[in-house]
Write a protein that binds this DNA or RNA. Sequence first.
RNA 1: GGCGCGGUAGCCAAGCGGUAAGGCGAUGGUCUGCAAAACCGUUAUACGUGGGUUCAAUUCCCACCCGCGCCUCCA
Length: 498
Amino acid sequence: MPLRIVSSLSKRREDFQPIHDKKIGLYVCGLTVYDVCHIGHARTFLAFDAIVRYLRFLGYDVTYVRNFTDVEDKIIKRALQEGVDSRVVSERYIRQAEEDFDALGMIRPSVEPKVTEHMGEIIAFVQALMDKGVAYAVDGDVYYEVNKFSGYGKLSRRTPDELQAGARVDIDERKRNPLDFALWKSGKPGEPVWESPWGLGRPGWHIECSAMATKYLGDHFDIHAGGADLVFPHHENEIAQSEAVLGGDWVKYWLHCGTLNIHHEKMSKSLGNYLTIQDALRRYHPEVLRFFILSFHYGSIIDFSDAFVEEKEQGLERLYHVLQQLDTTLDASLQDPALAAASSLSHSESEMVTRLAELRQAFIEAMNDDFNTAEAAGVLFQTAAVLKKYLLSLEDDTHTIGGGSYFALNQGRAFLKEVGQIFGIFQCSPDLLFQSVLERKLQNVVLPLPEIQQMISDRSQARKTKDWKRADAIRQALADHRILVQDTPEGTTWSVRR
RNA sequence: GGCGCGGUAGCCAAGCGGUAAGGCGAUGGUCUGCAAAACCGUUAUACGUGGGUUCAAUUCCCACCCGCGCCUCCA
């Protein structure tokens, strides 16, 4: 099955056919930089991060554009409050966002255009709308005339009448239609302004995306993505502007990512119910966050809670456990160079190789079905189960494995690593992952590390003398502090309960 | 009020016309001094409710109930 995409415009599965063969232009609406990012932002950008990775995996040459809107009312407001230039505010949060995104392991977009660096293109776009007669200037402001665009409302599936019926904004008498929106806003003293044919001012929200997407991706491009909360008015207005100037269907496929909710409410700065990316990363390994988010389909709403993330954390650790077993077995066998070469496969070995190929195909099929990372994640667990069983079947032998088994297991590990790159997981060694997860959990434990170690060692002494009563008392004392003791053939280890 | 999305096992979540992926939990087992971890097995005659279309519906249509989103800034 080829790649199929459910575009927000059609709401139906469509075969994906790029405008220019193997080249894909993809624009993701980025951030307005007036504050730090929360995990709601992370959800959207991580979802599209995986989509870009997958398109590249399929061999497409993706030009990935994600903007920073660095001129906007809230930035100006914040700058005023702090008594600094708005540039200070926007630059601070751009830097912070880049740090957060890097920490989450996101691939960098091909271009990250900023509004302040594209004033010429933006003004030209507004002028083009004026020339077309779909925009009008009033007192230094320029508005888009919604009535001039017959397709207005096609993305959000509402007619202009329906939109007006629910309007909760005060009517601006200077507008010809209450739905008309600002393309250019005149500036007040103290605000950042640029010269334009309509006087000093700044761009309205929406126009920057039309202008910058067009500059980097051309008049028509393949995929435009963003959060579901941008459908109206942002994307509706982008369509109106762009199609009025450029004609035809501006974007071929629209992708909208579901919001991330907390306690059944959308996480947002205005509600104050957010967890910043930085705070989330203190609690969870980046791969855990990625795996959590990607275990949902990009379009669905995620209800966030620590319990849900911890559930996925456990799942990811189990997957890593298989990887660790694979490493152990394969590394041990590698000591004999002759084993590294693929030799003729026995029946069970070739069955294993076939099964792995099927699973790889299942993963691809899942991703081909509108980037269904949730289903693809399921394939990862199925693969783990298959691999574990095979590993178990090998255990009867002497600890060395034959070339055929080596080949099969290596195939399995290569598959996990390969698709792991699409999810952005399996990028570190199992030990490092376990250690890192443990360290994050340890933050919530009040017992000092030396004390824990002392108690463990005391308990080991007690066990040596078969003083089970004392050993169990210490174990219970540790358990009261959420420390779980594990006795293994290699000695006693411990972990932190979730 | 309008428009949109969703309601699938104890919980989370895929599937969206041919008879229910996966994860967590629970439970039985292997292991263990006992545990834990890990591993193996079991775990939905059933998909919000009521109608309808169809040989066949969780999947399509209608109504209703519930939740969320958007209609103001929002990823």
